[in-house]
């Protein structure tokens, strides 16, 4: 554990809590892509199956459980409790365009051809692209509430901090995980355009982020 890794985990947790509280307090999931949230729940489910096989640390187990519970709770809020506010019309990204190639790639490129390893790889690849329905929705509607942009900022920052963590680990431990690093770079690149808009429009302006 190093400072980049810890800051990354905290950033990830902050992002998920921001989104959950936004929906819970406003009793509305307007502007939120339910599809992205289902994909994130799928990411955590397929990655954290090792909860049943190995014990790493109390921190590791608790964080995994928190991520799992919050991701499913968020999906529940969007599709059940506040489904009246769900904008299914604009949440029209075709997730099969992500799921099919990601599944295929996980079978082709993995560390071992075992169910847990393939599912772990699947989760890493899927996480890299899971935000696309959300970004697609913002592009389609042309705007995002500032609280939604704060969520996206922390979610993007988390993987960027993990990149710093991997650089740190490579230099201190010689640790290098090719699948995670390549996917992490791809994932972070997806947020770059958003980071730019966030700094220039949300932080310097006020209220909603509207696209030009």
């Amino acid at each position: 554990m190093n400072i980049f890794r810890l800051a990354g985990d905290v950033s990830h947790l902050v992002a998920i809590i921001i989104l959950f509280l936004k929906i819970w307090k406003s009793k509305s999931c307007a502007g939120i892509s339910g599809k992205s949230q289902v994909l994130f729940a799928l990411v955590f489910t397929s990655r954290y199956l090792d909860l049943f096989t190995v014990f790493i640390s109390a921190y590791n187990t608790i964080m995994k459980l928190v991520f799992l519970v919050l991701s499913y709770a968020t999906v529940y809020l969007i599709y059940m409790r506040f489904r009246g506010s769900y904008d299914s019309e604009n949440d029209s990204f075709r997730v099969e365009f992500l799921l099919v190639p990601v599944t295929g790639l996980a079978f082709l490129e993995n560390y071992a051809f075992t169910p847990l390893e393939i599912l772990w790889t699947f989760s890493i690849f899927l996480e890299a692209v899971a935000i696309m329905p959300q970004l697609f929705m913002i592009t389609k509607t042309g705007e995002a509430e500032s609280i939604t942009t704060h969520y996206l900022f922390f979610l993007g920052l988390y993987r960027a901090l993990y990149l710093a963590n991997w650089v740190w680990r490579y230099h201190t431990e010689g640790f290098f995980d090719q699948i995670a690093v390549v996917s992490g770079v791809v994932q972070t690149i997806f947020y770059c355009d958003f980071f730019y808009l966030y700094v220039t429009r949300v932080l310097r302006g006020s209220g909603k982020m509207s696209l030009p």
Binding site: M1, D9, Y111, A112, T114, W120, F175, D177, A180
Partner: peptide
């Protein structure tokens, strides 16, 4: 993974 990488990351 089981051998190829450390599994402490989230």
């Amino acid at each position: 993974g089981t051998d190829s990488k450390l599994k402490d990351e989230l």
